[in-house]
Computed example of a mutant assay.
Amino acid sequence: MKNNIDNIIEFLHGSNDFVVTSHVSPDGDNIGSTLGMYYSLKKLGKNVYYVLDDSAPLNLNFLVDGVKILKSSEFEQKDYSIIALDCGDKSRICLSDDIRDSAKTIICIDHHASNDAYGDLNYIDANASSTCELVYNLLVEFKNIKGLDLIDENIATALYTGLVTDTGNFAYSSTHPSSFEMAKELLLKGAKRDMIIQQVFQSNPYNYYKLLGEALNTLDIIDGKVASISITKEMLKNNTISFNDVDGITSYTRDIQGVEVGILLKEKKENEVKVSLRSKNYVDVSQIAQSFNGGGHVRAAGCTIYDSVENAKKKVLEAVLKTI
């Protein structure tokens, strides 16, 4: 069942025990949408558990400060439903297979075009700017149906964070008039815009820039249209910075005159490389990512390649150059 918001609202209203979660390698939309749902269910008096087997990046710690986030090994409930937010693939839900497979119901709320509607209940819109926009739409409709206005300052701040990160602070093509309307309403609800901008975009640690300098030395431009940067686990270790804290470097590959596709290769461990893909105008990078069992959006996608950084780069470049 896909995009029946009313059925999801009735399920949320009539059930009591929930796990909220998202995808591996958390980002702003991941954390923002999950927290928006978490706080909303708390306000409804539900038993809700935030389970995520990963850590938030440093620039998003301000959102999760004080929130109890469980690892799968710490979760002991037996009767629950899962709400998977911003997760385009069932296999990327960031908790144990046992917890996922034991859920009574899975609700999927997501905006990835590659999503195959794996939930028992689904709200999927690939045209939405962010999953936070879908959560916002759900809460607006909840108010219309149930007469309860759940959006407060905490929820507004969480949803605004996901909105601005997934739209590149309203610069990406995913930004629509509805995005600005949502932003206005969240600001009226008390979203802490200045704090969000400072924490997310203006608070990179010194070590980030040390790593950036080293990473830029790997910058490779092919045919003037494709650019790549590689980050090894040794580079992360030498600069004392976390794997989850350097995704912002991806934009440096795309933001070069004449470049259509940017590629960031980030080594997590030996023979495991996360690949982030970005495009400007005409290349659908989600199709490239899907060829490596990944996914995402037309202009922003990713995948994991289980090989060396050098071999992963060769494979991805071959696929991108065929598309170009």
Score class of each variant (00 low, 15 high):
residue 6 D to R: 08
residue 7 N to L: 14
residue 19 V to S: 08
residue 21 T to V: 00
residue 37 M to T: 14
residue 39 Y to I: 03
residue 49 Y to G: 02
residue 64 V to L: 00
residue 70 L to W: 03
residue 88 G to I: 05
residue 91 S to K: 14
residue 97 D to T: 01
residue 98 D to T: 04
residue 98 D to W: 02
residue 99 I to L: 02
residue 103 A to H: 02
residue 106 I to M: 03
residue 114 S to R: 09
residue 114 S to W: 04
residue 118 Y to A: 03
residue 121 L to Q: 11
residue 121 L to N: 13
residue 122 N to Y: 10
residue 131 T to V: 06
residue 143 K to T: 13
residue 144 N to Q: 15
residue 145 I to W: 10
residue 149 D to L: 06
residue 149 D to F: 06
residue 157 T to P: 01
residue 161 T to G: 01
residue 165 T to A: 01
residue 174 S to D: 13
residue 175 T to M: 10
residue 186 L to D: 12
residue 186 L to F: 04
residue 187 L to W: 04
residue 188 L to P: 11
residue 193 R to A: 09
residue 198 Q to M: 02
residue 200 V to T: 00
residue 206 Y to K: 15
residue 211 L to R: 15
residue 213 G to A: 13
residue 217 N to H: 14
residue 219 L to W: 09
residue 223 D to E: 11
residue 227 A to S: 12
residue 231 I to K: 05
residue 233 K to P: 15
residue 246 V to E: 15
residue 247 D to W: 06
residue 249 I to T: 12
residue 250 T to G: 11
residue 252 Y to L: 04
residue 254 R to P: 03
residue 254 R to K: 14
residue 273 V to L: 01
residue 281 N to F: 08
residue 283 V to T: 12
residue 286 S to T: 10
residue 288 I to E: 12
residue 289 A to R: 15
residue 292 F to G: 08
residue 296 G to Y: 11
residue 298 V to N: 11
residue 301 A to P: 07
residue 305 I to R: 09
residue 312 A to W: 03
residue 314 K to C: 00
residue 317 L to K: 13
residue 320 V to Y: 08
